[in-house]
Amino acid sequence: MLSVNNIVKQYAGHRALDDVSLTVEKGKIFGLLGPNGAGKTSLIRIITQITAPDSGEVIFNGQRLNSNHIAQIGYLPEERGLYKKMEIGEQVLYLARLKGLTTAEATKRVRYWFEKLEMGSWWNKKVEDLSKGMQQKVQFVATILHQPELIILDEPFSGFDPVNAEIIKNEILELNKQGATFIFSTHRMESVEELCDNIALIHRSKKILDGSVEEIRNNYRNQTYWLEYDGAFDTDIPSDIFEIHQQDHKEGKTKLKVQLREGKSANDMLAVLLPLVNIQRLDEVIPTMNDIFIEKVKTQN
C-alpha cells in the first residue's frame, strides 16, 4: 500500500536519507529500525507530509502522496504532546476534526474509545492533571480516531507501565486484524519480534537491511547451539566438528555454546558426543533482532 522509492533528503551539511526505498504491504505491521539519528524520523516526516523529499517519491495506494492522503494516515510522533490547558475531550475532538471528521462523528468515536480504554472520567480534565502514561493513552486515541488506513507509531510504548503497554499492544493487534497497516519505529527489539511482520533497518541515512522478521532471523542463523550434559567438560572431545564459544560448569552439569564448523551438522556433533556424555538439552540459537541489529550496525561502522 505504501512504497517509498529512492528518497533523498538533504539538510544543510548533512544527508538525512540517501536513496532509501522500501515497501509496506497492506495489513502488515512494518518495523522501521535504526540507531538514533539514522534518519527514521526524517523518513516518517516525509511519509506524513511534514517535509518533502529532495528527490524520490512516495506512492500511497497507487497514487503519488498528496494532501488528500492526510486523513488516511495517523501519526503518533516520538516528540508528542497536547495542549496543557485544554480539556481532554475537547482536545481529542479538535484533533479529530482537523483530520476531517464531523463534530458528531468525532464525538461518537471519542466516547467509544474513552469507554473502551477506561478513560470515561477524563473528559473534562485538563492535560496537566494527567500522568504521562495517561497522556500517552489520550494521544494514542487521537492518532487512531479517524480510522486511518496507515498508522505510524514512533516509540509507542515509551512511558507506559506494563499493564497499559499490554492494553495498547492488544489494540494495535486488533486494529491490524481489522485491516489497518502499521509502521512502527522503535528501539525495543523484543516488541519488534512480537509485533512486526517486516522490518527495514536504516543506518547512517541508508537502508542496510530489510525483509520479513522470520526470514531475516533465519538468514542470520549461524549453526550455533546451546548444549547441556551431565558431568564435567572433557577436553578430549574432538574439536574438528565444532568450536566452543562459551562454557559453564555448575552442580555437575556442563553448558556449552558451540558453533558447528563448515559443512558439519548437528547430527555429526551428536554422533561424537553420544558415546561420551549424557546429553540433556540441545537448542539451536536463532539470533534475536537485537543481536542482528547490533551486529549489522557494528559491521557497518
Partner: peptide, 17 residues
C-alpha cells in the same frame, strides 16, 4: 513557543499545513 514546548506541534503538522 507553547506548541513547541508542549510537543504538540508535530501532531498538528501531520494534520494541517
Amino acid at each position: 513557543i507553547e506548541e513547541k514546548t508542549n510537543r504538540i506541534i508535530e501532531v498538528m503538522i501531520s494534520s494541517v499545513k
